[in-house]
């Protein structure tokens, strides 16, 4: 009996997901169609990329509020470089960028911002909440400066393929998401670095006394969160064929929601990438279903809020002894 109960609790988010899908299929004949399925997957791909980074950060007992701004800035960098290159007037040079070069630069910028977060948190002991809150406005301001407050648009077909193309019958953003998820699963389950992430979040003091370089682990997870935000930003720019200066606003909230619904503990040390993917799926399916059912967007927000609460309450019941 307790076995059944613990199995049910273990798979609660999958069960919730299945129930949600069944109910929506019964309520709307437009829900269970290949078209809608790919739609949902494409829509969640950006959130999943960001949330994978967020999961690693939260596993170390941290938080990253700057993912949305880093996404916007990295996306704008890639867009700007593709569109205009870099002009160095004093030397009369114009550096033009290939698609690969521009993407690479965007990823570097994302990783750089994330590393800066990690550096503030480890070197100066700035609490993660404050360090990344500062980065949220810094990166947003930098985006405004870089774009002049206007969208950058029009990048050609090669770049558009990333966000809108199909490969082997599957949309490109879904491929990217799958690769990110697969790598992250290997990292968390099968590498020393992954093990150290859990140890640092589970008991920092014990980890330190076991010879784990805590600061190194932390800087890396924030750097990865930055890189994955950049990945999300590049997908978004490619899909819209436009880098919006206010892109990614409040993406950190959807991302934290996915992580939390997926059963990762905000007190660190417990959680998984697969959980986060399920969390993102639940949010994605819910969004899509509510739209199909013509539920007002205002109600959608209220429902989403309660779903997050419900998930956390369930998690509390599962783990009564954690604070």
């Amino acid at each position: 009996m307790t076995n059944i109960k613990s199995t049910l609790l273990k798979f609660q988010s999958i069960i919730a997901l299945v129930v949600l899908c069944v109910v929506l299929t019964l309520l709307s004949d437009k829900f269970l169609t290949p078209e809608n399925g790919w739609n949902i997957m494409r829509q969640i791909s950006i959130n999943v990329c960001i949330s994978v980074g967020m999961t690693l950060v939260i596993l170390t007992k941290g938080i990253d509020l700057s993912v949305g701004s880093m996404l916007a800035f990295a996306g704008a960098i890639t867009a700007g470089l593709l569109q205009n290159g870099i002009e160095i007037p004093s030397m009369n040079i114009l550096l033009e960028f290939t698609v690969f070069g521009a993407i690479f630069a965007g990823l570097i910028v994302g990783g750089g911002l994330g590393t800066f977060n990690g550096w503030m948190i480890t070197r100066f002991k700035v609490p993660p909440f404050v360090a990344t809150l500062s980065m949220l406005t810094i990166a947003r301001g930098a985006t405004m400066l870089w774009t002049g407050g206007f969208p950058i648009t029009g990048f050609g077909d090669t770049f558009a393929f990333i966000g809108t193309g199909w490969f082997l019958g599957i949309p490109m953003p879904v491929w990217i998401m799958a690769v990110v998820v697969a790598i992250a699963m290997v990292i968390t389950r099968k590498t020393v670095f992954g093990r150290h992430i859990y140890a640092v979040g589970g008991n920092e003091s014990a980890a330190r006394l076991s010879g784990i370089n805590i600061n190194k682990v932390k800087v890396w997870v924030y750097a990865i969160a930055g890189i994955l935000s950049a990945v999300g930003g590049i997908i978004l720019v490619s899909r819209l064929d436009s880098a919006q200066p206010n892109a990614g606003m409040s993406y950190e909230l959807d991302s934290i929601a996915a992580v939390v619904i997926g059963g990762t503990s905000l007190s660190g040390g417990r959680g998984s990438i697969t959980g986060t993917v399920q969390g993102a799926l639940i949010i994605g399916v819910l969004n899509s279903g509510l739209v199909l059912l013509n539920v007002s967007p205002f109600w959608q927000q209220i429902i989403k809020g309660f779903v997050i609460l419900l998930a956390v309450i369930m998690d509390r019941l599962n783990h009564p002894n954690e604070d």
Binding site: R195, Y198, A199, G202, N203, G211, E322
Partner: peptide, 23 residues
């Protein structure tokens, strides 16, 4: 407080300070 990561399995606690040897 300082010796164990309580919510980790025994295996992972035992290998924690010498995890290189199980790679």
């Amino acid at each position: 407080e300082d010796g164990l990561v309580l919510q980790m399995e025994i295996t992972k606690n035992i290998s924690m300070a010498s995890v290189g040897q199980v790679v």
